[in-house]
């Protein structure tokens, strides 16, 4: 099998790579592009630790092929902070101690950011159902939900 050449946009920058036809976007990000912020917790789309957005749509990058990224815009956890400035979600996760081990945290931030871009004022229930695809085993989600609600409020300027 010959490798496929892919041109895409990653966190705003043009990127090119070769990948196997059956290689996941997650493996491309981690193994070929050195972006290990997206994690593989299950490889089956159940845990959300590999969450990225493709053209603004939240997906599990373990369920997307690297070849599918052609001409798309991919956003990963590495693109969430702007230089030295953390995104309000990142800051609120820290302020609320909404992480313990932190391995699910990148996925939660990417997923929550996608939520707030669609719905700047989500209810607790909306936050819980949107984030139901992201597993956390440490926190019981309490502090994560509070951090997301708090970030939403700050981003609304309320």
């Amino acid at each position: 099998m010959s490798q496929i050449h892919v041109s895409t946009t990653l966190n705003g920058d043009p990127v090119e790579y070769l990948c196997e036809p059956d290689e996941t976007l997650l493996d491309v990000l981690r193994d070929r592009l050195g972006l290990t912020g997206s994690k593989e917790g299950c490889g089956s789309g159940d845990c959300g630790a590999c969450s990225v957005t493709v053209d603004g749509r939240l997906v599990c990058s373990c369920l997307v092929l690297g070849a599918e990224a052609q001409d798309r815009e991919i956003e990963t956890i590495e693109g969430v902070a702007q230089g030295e400035n953390l995104h309000p979600l990142q800051q609120k996760i820290l302020d609320h101690a909404a992480l313990q081990c932190g391995v699910c945290t990148p996925g939660f931030i990417v997923a929550a950011k996608a939520l707030l871009e669609r719905n700047p004022d989500p209810s607790e229930t909306e936050v819980r159902y949107w984030l139901a695809g992201n597993l956390c085993r440490c926190t019981g989600y309490d502090k994560i939900v509070r951090a997301v609600m708090d970030a939403a409020q700050e981003m609304r300027g309320a």
């Binding site: 590495e78 820290l94 990148p106």
Partner: peptide, 13 residues
Amino acid sequence: GVDKVTGRARFGA
């Protein structure tokens, strides 16, 4: 903390 919210923290894999 910052390493963990930015994806910099290096885990086992």
